[in-house]
Computed example of a mutant assay.
Amino acid sequence: MTEKTYRVIQWATGVVGKAALKHFIENPVFDLVGVLVTNPGKVGKDAGELAGLPPTTGVLATDDVEAIIALDADCVHYAPLVADVDTICRLLASGKNVASVGGPFSPQHYPAHFEKIEAACRAGGVSYHACGVHPGFSGDILPLTLTRLMNRIDHIQVYEFIDKVQNPMIYTEMMGFGRDPEALLAKPSRSPEAPYAFAQSMAMVAEGLGKTIEKVTTRLEVAKATKDIPYTLGEGREGGGVIRQGTVGGQHYEWTAWCEGKPLITYHFYWSMGPDIEPQWDIDSRYQVVIEGDPALEVRLMARPGPDGVRPFLGLPWTGLLGATALPAVCEAKPGFVTHIDLGVVQPHGLVRG
């Protein structure tokens, strides 16, 4: 049986984009036709080389946005560090379905963005899907699936634990690690808009349970570095530095959705610069869902340990794969903004291969 194939473009090749790019090259369901890069050092390189594979695809990376938009393609996996709605709309209007790992996610909180996206979808006759591991899986698809094991639900809690020393990321500096603790508490580095990126996930879970969210509250606590902590920004990236003793070495953001006067869904984000922080937190990198009720349950989603016994944090590669594996369903969906509910149970093809 011959499976339908989809002509795909990979937009950006950071950690997220690289995981998707490798998938597109190796999966026979996809025909890679273009790669957009923003790093001048990557221009002209074969897509295989950028994905850590043999440079034999014949698809060369470009930073020419107009050339990418002009390509004949079914879909785009859009994974820049910061999403640009106008660019997304140009891709949609050109007749390309888009899965964006950076959102925008929520029509309720960004109506102007989604008016433009819907108009572009109509113009191109295509669909737009916002996706990722969180928001997009661990905070919505996973807990919604688990609710079928429950007789009664009191409280759903979703956790993200990341050790940023073991798993270096460019977000370390952006997130304000190394700042004065009181200054960070007074003015967090994470945008006040951040909870709204996750609001659709919370709403999706609540609506799946037949409830409506009344409000979302936020809380931040910090941990201090107990010694100087050197850090890097990850493989292939220049920069890094030292988190000085007494400065912010850990952050715990807590966002809670309330329903009928009680907490219904809480998202916890525990980010730490290794174990040398006070208070000490669990730093075993993973996602975790805890549902309080009858019967209570707990599920942990994590990578297998590496040769050193440490579990790597796969949130970024998983983000790329969640977008990539959804693309055929997005291409076949009705034109417009499509959610996980609209897509139904995504059935990725091409994963089992010799």
Rank of each mutant, 00 (worst) to 15 (best):
T5N: 13
R7N: 13
R7I: 01
I9D: 02
G14N: 08
K22A: 14
K22V: 07
V29D: 00
G34A: 01
V37D: 03
K42R: 14
E49C: 08
P54H: 10
P55C: 02
A61D: 12
T62C: 09
T62H: 09
D64T: 14
A70L: 04
V76Q: 03
H77F: 13
Y78N: 00
A79D: 03
D86Y: 12
T87N: 15
R90H: 12
N97M: 09
S100Y: 00
P104L: 00
Y110F: 15
A112S: 15
F114S: 01
S127F: 00
S127H: 05
H129E: 02
V133A: 09
V133H: 06
R148S: 13
R152T: 15
I156R: 03
E160P: 02
E160N: 11
D163H: 05
V165S: 02
I170A: 10
E173N: 07
R179C: 14
R179H: 06
E193Q: 11
A197M: 10
A199E: 07
V205I: 13
A206P: 14
K211H: 10
I213D: 05
R219S: 15
T226W: 01
K227V: 15
K227H: 15
L233P: 07
L233I: 10
G234Y: 02
G236D: 11
R237P: 15
E238G: 14
G246Y: 09
G246L: 00
V248R: 00
E254I: 14
W255C: 00
A257M: 04
A257V: 07
W258V: 13
K262A: 14
K262L: 04
L264A: 03
H268V: 08
W271H: 03
M273F: 08
P279I: 01
Q280N: 14
D284K: 13
R286K: 14
P295W: 04
P295K: 02
V299E: 09
R300Y: 14
A303D: 10
G309Y: 09
T319F: 06
A324R: 01
T325V: 06
A326D: 07
A326G: 04
A329W: 07
E332T: 05
E332H: 06
H349E: 15
